[in-house]
């Protein structure tokens, strides 16, 4: 394993120390392991807290700041945070108007946030939970754990964060977050496995001419293994399931996120964006806004995900609202 680490067991804590050193406008609690806006709690403002396993950077700690999250709780690598952490972050941002938890739909995240929400409620903090489950590679079913939460998390955090920043009440912030999730769909492919610092070896072996189709962001294998093919065809592979899952009217505006999983050069992401834009265009979809880059990653996995979110003027307004975080910044 070749990584910039000291003891693999310390990697999350040491990365957080780096975040603290690099971003004076964030406060990092190294003991409780969370990252919070330096000006938290803000009285009367709904707090927005997210978290999940580490290894997806900049998600979530990189999205803490004005206009987006108030706090993030990074768990160990690919391991959801523990309730104590989430509770501490929740208390740190509670300004009396309640706190929204943005939770990616993984059993571990769901349960840990649930336990934390119960503890927070015991302390008199109102909690709303927004569950993100946008990955259409996984079938939606009440019999299973359901879809995973992936790229749409960024959109939920940005848009709900903008509304919270405006002073909207708890129910509205949660509602807009849920709405963004409902309007979003994602699909990912991997060219290589990733290596967690603790395991020290790739999660799976993938022959040189095969790709994993329908992967998540935890280094797991995908729904199927297929032959490597040109960018054009991979673009179709990720776009079609989204167009099938998401009934997009002709001319309807969308936000498109072409996201790198960690080790894919930006040049290749732009090649993919070009191909995907062509496919969406042919389907009558209008790309109103787009993002291309590494936002929701899976350590050093080579691969990409596509997220498409249908939007209206209000969602676009909130998307365009100023944001100032290490990982996403504009207008301020």
């Amino acid at each position: 394993m070749k990584k910039f680490v000291n003891d693999p067991a310390d990697v999350v804590r040491e990365a957080l120390a780096g975040v603290a050193a690099a971003h004076p406008d964030l406060r990092v609690d190294l003991a409780e392991q969370f990252v919070v806006r330096a000006d938290a709690p803000r009285t009367g403002k709904v707090g927005l807290v997210s978290g999940g396993g580490s290894g997806h950077e900049p998600l979530h700690a990189g999205f803490v700041g004005p206009g987006m999250l108030d706090a993030a709780c990074p768990g160990e690598v690919f391991t959801s945070p523990v309730p104590d952490q989430i509770l501490a972050a929740t208390k740190a941002v509670d300004g009396g108007a309640g706190v929204v938890h943005v939770v990616k739909n993984y059993t571990g995240d769901v349960m840990n946030f649930q336990l934390a929400a119960e503890l927070a409620a015991d302390e008199g903090i109102r909690i709303e939970t927004v569950l993100v489950d946008d990955d259409v590679a996984v079938e939606d079913s009440t019999w299973t754990a359901g879809r995973r939460g992936t790229g749409a998390t960024l959109l939920v955090e940005k848009i709900a964060g903008a509304l919270a920043e405006e002073g909207a009440p708890l129910a509205d912030v949660a509602a807009v977050g849920r709405r963004v999730n409902e309007l979003s769909a994602s699909f990912a492919v991997a060219l290589t496995a990733c290596t967690t610092p603790a395991a020290g070896r790739p999660g799976f072996e993938l022959p040189d001419d095969e790709i994993e189709v329908g992967v998540g962001i935890h280094g797991e294998p995908g729904r199927s293994r297929q032959k490597l093919r040109p960018a054009k065809e991979i673009a179709a592979l990720v776009t079609e399931p989204i167009l099938t899952a998401e009934p997009i009217a002709s001319g309807e505006p969308v936000i498109v996120l072409v996201n790198g999983l960690g080790a894919t050069p930006l040049m290749e992401l732009y090649v993919m964006f070009g191909e995907i834009a062509r496919l969406l265009d042919a389907a009558g979809v209008r790309i109103a806004r787009s993002l291309v880059g590494d936002y929701v990653t899976s350590l050093d996995m080579a691969g990409m995900s596509l997220t498409v979110c249908r939007v209206d003027d209000e969602l676009l307004r909130l998307w365009d609202a100023p944001v100032r975080t290490p990982g996403l910044r504009w207008g301020m």
């Binding site: 396993g53 391991t79 959801s80 523990v82 309730p83 571990g108 349960m111 840990n112 649930q114 336990l115």
Partner: peptide, 12 residues
């Protein structure tokens, strides 16, 4: 276990 493990197995 709840406060140190995280993931699915920690709370369970």
């Amino acid at each position: 276990l709840v406060s140190k493990v995280g993931g699915a197995s920690g709370p369970l």
